[in-house]
Nucleic acid binder design. Structure first.
Lengths: 247, 247
DNA sequence: TAGCAATAGTTGTATATACAACTATTGCAT
DNA sequence: ATGCAATAGTTGTATATACAACTATTGCTA
């Protein structure tokens, strides 16, 4: 059985598999064979539309279902990427989260939180693995001062591993409270802490923040009133913290 | 937070929530308030299209997402129904299944199996609860002879709580093997056993199989080469096993 | 009453199209 | 180099339409 979960029986239903299942198969085969590694940018909706001679909505459906299954990760404006295998098989994490939610009495949210947790773990992992990869997958965005409320970019608020009671009034939460709440829910605590502390981020990403690189690709940023942690590519696969940190 | 998992933050994203989220909210509110009980037939895609002045695909998306979340159950040709609350909060079952899958080393299938397990538990539960409800939700279909391979209607093969190794060649499995494999994965074992044994089904559903009812609604069946367990409505909310069992 | 045909209703799949929102790159002016 | 504008690319949302597959009901015929 493939990672997509498509059984042979499912395909012989009417001797005529749905078109989007063919696309899903194609993608899964490429991933399983190793052709498309982690963080690989899979063909866009338009490209799949041409390759398989289908409408965009059909190609989109294939990508979307694989995303829901934790096999792909999508980013508006950027593209669709192969998820880390870690998240594809992170059953252990799921169980830990389940326990936590279970104790808090929010059983009916458990499944959604499982899915969301995988998504956010995904993005963080991709971010932190940049040093091993040429893809520039952006970006973790945090507005942060000790003992002052946190501001997260909205999509992270939506996806984050945050218990319900924190979500309801996130602006009253301090970094310390955030971490202590998230800590029992995730294995990525260390990485999150590293992001919160600039110096550690630099260390983690092998970034030289003091001396400028010889050549840095210019980037523009859509300012949103939050701090953007810009990671810029430079010749020789070196990275440096961007100077475009905007408020 | 509602059962849909929609947070207030999610809705204030751009001060303009997506249309399908409004429909999801509407449905969830009706369910939470008790207006729409278990097995209630929710408005069809076309009805929602008119009520909310949206396209069918938008209404469809709302129904589909709630189905994926285990809140609704859909049946082609019949309609969309409110799932049992049991499956909405059956975290315990999910964990048990997780353990099972985990031990068998099929981690990456875990999430899909969780979702599927909820779906099939759903349908079985709805079937067995018919006696308490006016809705005739059809139908469990089994082809069964002792010590001979089982045949299940295809959609149940796809959705069933069956371990992978059984799915791969289902036709070689005997009823006994099937039960012993499924037993540790579900709380519905007793119900499944009841379905497998005609007499117990009759007992469970308060069906009088020997004496014909005074008046029975006629039904036609699309024959598929499998045994159809037909449940026919009769005056006074009595049920009787149909005479249309077709092979 | 039983069997069959026809019809309507509901979900599933698929296409074509349009615009919004966001991202990434390029080019130009300073 | 820096900053800005313009452009193209990608995903997100939404509409309109058509047909397929299956279900449910009704009506006719024998």
């Amino acid at each position: 059985m493939s990672i997509s979960g498509l059984s042979t029986t499912e395909l012989s239903k009417n001797e005529k598999p749905a078109k989007y299942t063919l696309i899903k198969q194609h993608i899964c085969q490429n991933i399983e064979s190793g052709k498309w590694p982690q963080h690989f940018k899979v063909p866009s909706e338009n490209e799949l539309t041409q390759q398989f001679d289908v409408s965009r909505m059909t190609a989109r459906r294939a990508l979307q279902e694989l995303t829901e299954q934790g096999i792909l990760v999508r980013a508006q404006g950027s593209g669709t990427f192969v998820a880390t295998f870690k998240s594809q098989s992170s059953l252990l994490e799921i169980r830990n989260i389940s326990d936590e939610i279970h104790e808090r009495g929010h059983r009916h949210h458990a499944k959604q939180l499982m899915l969301k947790s995988i998504a956010v773990t995904e993005e963080i992992t991709i971010l932190l693995n940049l040093k091993n990869n040429e893809h520039v997958f952006l970006s973790q965005i945090l507005h942060f001062e000790d003992d002052k409320p946190i501001q997260l970019e909205q999509r992270y608020v939506n996806a984050a591993l945050v218990p319900e009671y924190l979500l309801q009034d996130f602006t009253t939460t301090t970094p310390h409270e955030y971490l202590s709440a998230v800590a029992p829910l995730t294995e990525a605590t260390h990485e999150i802490e590293a992001i919160l502390a600039d110096n550690e981020v630099c260390q983690l990403l092998d970034i030289d923040n003091s001396e400028p690189c010889l050549q840095v690709k210019r980037r523009t940023w859509s300012s949103k009133g939050v701090v953007s942690l810009a990671i810029l590519t430079a010749p020789g696969n070196k990275y440096r913290l961007g100077s475009h940190l905007v408020f």
